[in-house]
Design a protein around this nucleic acid. Structure first.
Ligand SMILES: [Mn+2]
Ligand SMILES: [Mn+2]
Ligand SMILES: [Mn+2]
Ligand SMILES: [Mn+2]
Lengths: 222, 222
DNA sequence: AAAATATTTTAGTCGTACCTAAATTAATTA
DNA sequence: TAATTAATTTAGGTACGACTAAAATATTTT
């Protein structure tokens, strides 16, 4: 059942459907897939039919698509490959944080169990990728950690930066300037009502970050 | 001129044509490409037309194809990627000597200059791949080393194993048993007329290897 | 030099993965 | 509720990269 061979396109669709589905729970619309993959809705409908026939998703005409158990399993393996390659590029090949995604998007489609298992071992079985996203293990098990926005903290509370949403170079540069990275401890000092910006304490000094920036940095409470 | 983007298929054809052409000198027949890629001659003709239109090869109907300057340049970059990935798989991921080719055949098509340059650096700019084949540098420069067969040695002469032709697992196992690898010193002791087998001295003992085995091991004289 | 054989090309087809335009269905607004 | 708008699907088309069968050309054998 799991041993069918998928094309690169099928893999990209399946991964996107999984990502849009909230870990497989929600229905995914044709339009949302179209937008995320930059492919016309009519073409998405074609592929939906193909994936349905392979029982990787369930589809109800005009209603939406739900990823199947099997589909989730496969999607998680693609995500595993993607994130392991990101770790490799970042840690071994000195890629910048904002340069890894594009290349990983290609490498994730190279299919060899031996390749990915040995890479995993070589990287010492990392638990998260450079953006803070959890890496599924060989069995597809994945640590879902509750992540909240900085603004969800109460004043005085502390958190650890655990996920960077935006992957642009500009955002990367800003974080670099602020010396914020995965693992950095943050304490909320004040919420500024006027423009919803936020004052935080990091690396022994206090800085004010805008609402948009705050929304792109997820943390776990400590 | 060099910046056109090629499909995986086009890249595989171009590499095969280069490999069959004796470094770009010889005409390559449609049939030979067909055989090496396991694609019907009619399909090969189609692709030949495509590559001709892109000036990567010159083609004369019913005569054969010759790879162009530009074609060689591109082929060497694909070969560079292939061999660097082979080094990575062999040295970093502990792949066996006979397991690397197939995966490298896929990895070679991931296109990112940054990826391959950083990989090259990470591997400390290797000059040869695990089979003993030279790795072209970024500029497409490649060390052609004169390699001869063991049987071309005179009795008493020494050579260094520098290239393994056959890449089967069985052949790998045999070499393993004989403790022959790239860099092993070999001395020719005797040529046995009866079955053209050969007596050689390696690792402080003498062994007899068949004609076929000898032909699959290339050496450089010392 | 013919005939036979081998190689290569042409012609026509197919599946994949996309597209645009038009039809259908669902959701929103008046 | 009816009309309008939005989302989705269907219908028909294209480029790519493969295939088979048949035609054209080249090579080898007699
Ligand atoms: Mn991808
Ligand atoms: Mn990531
Ligand atoms: Mn290849
Ligand atoms: Mn090799």
């Amino acid at each position: 059942m799991t041993n069918l061979i998928l094309s690169k396109s099928e893999e990209n669709y399946l991964k996107s459907i999984y990502n849009l589905s909230d870990s497989g729970s929600k229905l995914v619309t044709t339009n949302s897939i179209s937008k995320i993959l930059n492919i016309e809705p009519a073409s998405v409908t074609d592929m939906i039919k193909k994936l349905s026939k392979k029982n990787l998703i369930y589809h109800q005409k005009y209603k939406g698509s739900k990823i199947s158990k099997n589909g989730i399993k496969i999607a998680l393996q693609i995500i595993r490959k993607h994130r392991l390659w990101e770790v490799f590029l970042y840690e071994k090949l000195n890629f910048k944080w904002d340069e890894i995604h594009e290349v990983a998007e290609e490498l994730e489609h190279v299919s060899s169990d031996q390749l990915i298992d040995n890479l995993d071992k070589y990287l010492k079985y990392p638990k998260i990728d450079p953006h803070g996203d959890p890496i599924p293990n060989k069995l597809g098990e994945i640590d879902f950690v509750d992540k909240i926005s900085i603004s969800d903290l109460n004043i005085g509370q502390k958190g650890i930066v655990s996920r960077i949403i935006n992957e642009d170079e500009e955002f990367f540069n800003l974080l670099n300037k602020l010396k914020i990275e995965i693992g950095t401890e943050i304490k909320l000092i004040d919420k500024i009502e006027y423009d919803s910006s936020i004052e935080i304490f990091i690396n022994n000094r206090s800085v004010i970050i805008s609402k948009v920036v705050a929304e792109n940095i997820k943390i776990t409470k400590v």
